[in-house]
Structure formats: C-alpha cells, structure tokens
Simulated assay, not measured.
Amino acid sequence: MDTVEIDAPVAGVTVYPDRARVTRRGRVRLTAGDHRVRVAPLPLGLRRDSIRVGGRGAVTVLGVDVAAWRQPRSTDAQVVELERRRRELADELAEVGDTDAIEDQRGEFLTRLAERAGGTYARALATGDAAPADVAAFTDSVSGQLAESRARRRGLARRRTELAEELAAVDRELDAARGKREPDRLAAEVSVSVDADDTEVELELTYLVDGARWTPSYDLRLVEDTMTVTWFGLVSQGTGEDWPECELQLSTARPAAASGVPELSPWYLDRLRPEPPMVVSAASFGGVVPPPAPGAAPAARP
C-alpha cells in the first residue's frame, strides 16, 4: 500500500469556549487499488478520538490512523525566521567573545613587553647605548597600542550587551510561539480503496483541538436618549497551526471529545386494558344498600 501526501488546508473552524473543531479539505487523484493518504502536519493538541473522515468520489474509506510525524525542525515560517536570527546572534556573540579574548591576550603581551623593555632601556641609557628619543618612541608606541586595545575591548563589551539583549528578546518570542516551535507534528493516515484509475478524491478531515477559545465582548454607548449595544467575539488560539482566511464560526456549546454510544432505557408498549368495574359491598354503607341509579332495575332481595 503506497502513501500519498495530500494538501488539505484549513477550510473552516468552529471555536468553542475551550477548544475548536477544525475542518480540512483536499483533493488528490489516485489509481485503482488501496492507498494510504497522509494529511499533515496536524497540531500536537489534536484529540485523536475526535478525528472524522468524509469526502466525495468513487472511493471507500477503510480507516484512519493518527501517527507522529517527525521533523528536524519547525515548518512554521515565523519560527524558522526566529530560529535563524537566534543562530546568527549566537554566532556573533561567540565571535565577540573570541575577539575580546584575543584583545585581552594582546594587552597582557604589551604590558609584559613594556615591563621587560623598561629594564633593558634603563641599562642601555646608563651605558649610552640608547638615545632618550628611542626610549620615548618605544614607550609611545606601546602606550598607543594598549590604549587602542582597551578601547576595542570597551566597544566589544557594549556590543556583547546589545547582542545579549536582542538574543533574550528572540528567546521570548520563541517561547511565545512554543506551540509552533515544536518540530514534531501529527499526521492522519487515511486508508482508502479505489476501484478505477485516475479517480479524483476529495477528502474532508475534521478534529477537535485544545488551546483555542473565544470570549464575548460588549460595547455600550449612550448618546442622549439612544443606547447602542455592539457585541463581538474575541478569538485566541495557541494550537500550533495557522488558521488562514476561512469560514469561522463561534459556538457556546461544549462538545465531547468522542461520541460514545449511550445506554438506552427500554420502553415497553402494550395494548390498553380497561380497568374492571369496582364492586361495592353493603358493609361499606353501614348495612344500608344505596338506592339504585336512575333508570336502573331494583336489585332483587334475597
């Protein structure tokens, strides 16, 4: 059984107060035989027992499985760009650290060179082997190089602080997109059987996913004696999948994750049976027989 990838974008979303029902639709042409159609990626918060499959075409749906779809990194464009920027910042931060270490070694070398050269020049001046101008030129050269090295180190320290702050901001954005950052996703694998070659199949996949909600909001405005009430819904979601422009509905229901078969209470039906007439004894009237109903024949005395 071969596996066929299908592009099934989000076609509609129904948002509930604590979750959402997502509908995806896609088309694919299949040859005769059995196939496994994969719809991916799906969010990790998908409720596996809520997935339903429908569609159109001369095809029989044999079943649907939900499997993990392993990826080396996230496929979300926002997360990919943030991770790329984070790698650039980390590399530049490491480069600044290496340059600062080199400047530190340079400063130590110049300091030791100045200390050793000081004694040598002092003896040379005492013996007349060195001129004071040569000593002054050497001292000025070493001092200038030390000053430049320390200035570069101060600039590197400022750059390190800027890079650390920008890196922290990128990390915060990645934390906010935590659902999108996860590289692993779920995939729905629909097993189908096709009777004829070159058959166009339209599949519709629906599922419940956590991490979505909506809340009502009201705006009341009173102008003189007229009050205007505006109602709208605020939708938010952190499911890890994008909802492009599609049919969006809001619902106050709270659907169950799975529709189980309820236990039914039996109803018993029978024909109507008239109740027998009530027999009243004379003792019930203190031994006195009640008078007969109008039009009834008098009872025979014993």
Results as ranks from 00 to 15, higher is better:
Val235Arg: 11
Pro244Ile: 06
Arg271Ile: 06
Trp214Pro: 00
Pro244Gly: 13
Asp270Tyr: 14
Tyr268Thr: 09
Lys180Thr: 02
Arg181Cys: 12
Ala256Gly: 15
Val279Ala: 00
Leu186Phe: 07
Glu182Cys: 06
Tyr207Phe: 15
Val194Ile: 14
Leu269Lys: 07
Arg221Cys: 03
Pro216Trp: 06
Met278Tyr: 02
Val223Lys: 13
Gly179Ala: 15
Leu222His: 03
Ser284Val: 11
Val235Cys: 05
Leu234Val: 11
Gln249Ile: 06
Val280Asp: 03
Glu204Arg: 08
Leu222Thr: 12
Glu200Ser: 12
Arg213Asn: 05
Ala256Thr: 14
Arg185Asp: 08
Glu245Val: 07
Ser193Trp: 09
Gly179Ser: 13
Asp175Met: 01
Ala212Thr: 00
Thr206Gly: 00
Thr252Leu: 13
Val280Asn: 03
Glu247Leu: 15
Ser284Asp: 11
Glu189Cys: 03
Ser217Arg: 14
Thr206Glu: 12
Val190Cys: 02
Glu182Lys: 10
Leu272Val: 15
Val194Ala: 08
Ala196Glu: 15
Glu173Gln: 09
Leu186Pro: 01
Leu272Asn: 10
Met227Leu: 11
Arg254Cys: 02
Asp242Leu: 06
Leu203Asp: 12
Val279Lys: 04
Ser259Gln: 14
Val261Gly: 01
Val223Leu: 13
Ser193His: 14
Arg254Gly: 07
Ala283Ser: 12
Arg271Met: 09
Ala176Phe: 11
Thr239Asp: 09
Leu272Arg: 11
Pro262Val: 04
Ala177Phe: 13
Val261Gln: 10
Trp243Ala: 06
Val194Phe: 04
Glu247Ile: 15
Pro266Arg: 08
Ser193Phe: 10
Glu204Trp: 00
Val279Gln: 04
